[in-house]
Design a binder for these strands. Sequence first.
DNA 1: ACCTGGCACTCGTGTGGCCCGAGTGCTAAT
DNA 2: ATTAGCACTCGGGCCACACGAGTGCCAGGT
Lengths: 338, 338
Amino acid sequence: MSEDRRRAVLRAIVEGYVATSEPVGSKALADASSLGVSSATIRNDMAALEEEGLIAQPHTSAGRIPTDAGYRSFVDNLAATALHDPHKRAIQTFLSDAVDLNDVVERSVRLLSQLTRQVAVVQYPSLRESAVRRVELVRIGADRALVVVVSADARVEQSTVALGEAVGDEEFERVARELNEASVGHTPAALLTSLTSWASRPGQVSWATSIADAVVAAARGGTVERVVFAGAANLARAGADFESDAIGSVLDALEEQVVLLRLLHEMAAEGQDIAVRIGAETRTDALARTSVIAAGYGPSGDAASLLGTLGPTRMDYPGTMAAVRAVARYLSRVVENE
Amino acid sequence: MSEDRRRAVLRAIVEGYVATSEPVGSKALADASSLGVSSATIRNDMAALEEEGLIAQPHTSAGRIPTDAGYRSFVDNLAATALHDPHKRAIQTFLSDAVDLNDVVERSVRLLSQLTRQVAVVQYPSLRESAVRRVELVRIGADRALVVVVSADARVEQSTVALGEAVGDEEFERVARELNEASVGHTPAALLTSLTSWASRPGQVSWATSIADAVVAAARGGTVERVVFAGAANLARAGADFESDAIGSVLDALEEQVVLLRLLHEMAAEGQDIAVRIGAETRTDALARTSVIAAGYGPSGDAASLLGTLGPTRMDYPGTMAAVRAVARYLSRVVENE
DNA sequence: ACCTGGCACTCGTGTGGCCCGAGTGCTAAT
DNA sequence: ATTAGCACTCGGGCCACACGAGTGCCAGGT
């Protein structure tokens, strides 16, 4: 009862079930697969695999399907698969046409959902450590101002501030100048101290604090975590794998962002180049029948943001992982050049 | 055979079917409803309604359900319904906490989807006619610049421009100053002429045209039409009304934006305060089994943007219409004050 | 002219019984 | 350790049947 063959049987079961979505039996395996043994032998192996909890049978007189643990074992014993060439080219052409960061993210998420035929998720690049390049103060009406913060990585964040009193032009200009002096070149962390001291300078205008707060918030703005997703339709298409109200729960979780972000963070913390959560491993009720595959991306080495896919546990893991890896790599490159 | 009673019967059928999602028969109507006639009479009316094409029976021995035309007639004969008080309050509290335009839109779409238990759609306010308030040019690297355009209605649009050559600081500053002089106060339309002449001024730097183009595009940027949606899960929940791959098509259409935008435009063109498209009236294959309810919103009188809901044709039209109307009204108010 | 009670008819759905075959586990032989 | 053979299980498909909801129509009443 060679250990190797048992792994091969498991792999064949996973692949068969993923391909047909029907439980696979020992006979079919013996006929179709390249393991040169009889169905009886395979049955013995299956019994062992079931003992280990890697496969299960839906009813007594049916074939076997992988359990979550079975998929896990399958994934862990997986050699990295190369992406198909046409897919590679698709990524290049798709992403190279993007005009700005939003567009890049938007395109990436669509692309990934098309490549994998799953729900794709891309977290906006988080720009924790980028310094402030410029702060602009623009008047709107007598007692309101628009704060625009441009960061070193070409992100623009904005917010409006109520000044609380009518302010004259010269004063406004002066404050704007001072504000720039106190802000430019600082990271969000440093900003906090430098602007607090600026705002509490003796004789400072009363609305300086509001402005300072707004600048700090805006500079941090890039840190506000957002995810975009695409391909929700693919969930519905894989309908056979869910009862229809389960689809609803999954969609809810997607819109809920928070849940998904927490999960992505946990996965990032594991520190591999690509992370896979299968079924209950997501530790999220709504996602109990789904798997999430995620990879980090970002400027060289610093994979601070995440992207990935979500789909039924019965999915093509090697192919999806290859696509996620590839898109993450290309996206890193694009972000770096921006 | 009074015309009035026939309308009442139709209304009762619609309401019954919407409530129970089961075909309603003559007996049930006679018992439950307040029309004081026997089931036989109702049967006659039903036969007439069926003749008119307003109702149909799924099989011979079943009750009747409304056709698209039946819903249409029902909606057309509808008096405006008031919104429930708790809902009214929900709208107020929900929207008054918003911090900026993005947030307002985001909150609105979620709110609307919760109120109606349908998919909600909000088009970003289109700001065609707002003048440029300020243009900022920021350097990124030696030969790239970030163009930030702030418009009078406090929108910020940005894009990056390749300059094509390394540019010195003083020159850069000078161009930035000139650019502002030539831009500020102009509407996008006026910008086009003023910036073209500026860029073709004798002795002008070679990259002036690229910059000018970027500014014009950014100023127009508010016109880029985008819709956001929320509540896709509600579609899945109403699963009984769709085969599961129909849900997929609808989700595709939602992500496809273009289709939806075209539809919303058509509806806006009809010029009522609220527009309803039922089933095939959407003239979109993917939406053949759904209805769309849309209303315009925007600064007083100028209802230039749209918002609405989308759901199965079997929906609560009066309630949904009331919610759409209410959110449109509140959103108009908010946008006006911004 | 309109409404109503009655009655025959249709047909979709739910139920129970049946068989078939895929797939298994076990055992004995190689 | 592998294989062939065999008895066994059980889910799904099929058929027949009865039930009942709902209809259409007609004749009689107001």
